[in-house]
Design a protein around this nucleic acid. Structure first.
Lengths: 110, 110
DNA sequence: ACACATGGTAAGCATACACTTACTGTAAGC
DNA sequence: GCTTACAGTAAGTGTATGCTTACCATGTGT
């Protein structure tokens, strides 16, 4: 399924931005409202909204309406997409790397 | 060694670019010279060089001089950095998600 | 119903960055 | 030694995008 890389690409691009990553990591502590996220962050509230929209489009977060607040939480779907892609890459990397293992031995714990 | 997230950030940013990802994925087939990579790609040779430099800085590829050719191969180090970061995120995501598992069960794959 | 709070959207700006065409350096082949 | 091939670097350009301020929509509490 070559179409599997597409969501991974979106998720990768989404997490490439430092602010977005920071936002995402903050959601690890649990669901948060937009204002709550903007309060402790370094950028304005609209910026947070835009970033959350990108993360949502990438399947990395999920939003729930709670009155006038909008609560965002981590959605494992996007993370799973990245993980699948990474595992695929990892296989190829090992295949390629196994031939070099004997001659190259940088700091690497077994 | 507490700056483990930094390499992950670089690697994430490097792989966020489609061309760079394409380049990286092409290296799964094995080590390739720059001209070889540019030959089948969509961008010019200098662009490939620049992208390879970024990938190298991110610890994702490794280069070896072979006469006038410069052969690039996948370096698992960058991939490992991403994987470590991902695993960390995954733990948090699961922790957050476990409470929601029962009520959420949508899949709109077709 | 009115006022306040919360958050998404619009428009605009400023920087970053992916790509190109030249140029330079270096190693192989004659 | 000279020419040819291969690759990295410089300089410049166009577009994408992250951020801001202003505005609009929705929901809640009195």
């Amino acid at each position: 399924m070559s179409k599997k890389s597409a969501p991974a690409a979106t998720a990768l691009a989404a997490l490439a931005d430092p602010t977005r990553r920071q936002l995402f990591e903050r959601l690890r502590s649990g669901p948060r409202a937009v204002g709550e996220l903007a309060r402790g962050g370094t950028v304005s509230r609209p910026a947070v909204s835009q970033h959350l929209a990108v993360l949502k489009a990438a399947g990395l977060v999920r939003d729930t309406a709670a009155g006038t607040r909008r609560v965002y939480e981590i959605d494992p779907k996007g993370l799973a997409a990245i993980r699948a892609w990474l595992d695929d890459m990892w296989g190829g990397a090992l295949q390629n790397f196994s031939a070099e293992l004997e001659k190259d031995n940088d700091e690497r714990e077994s």
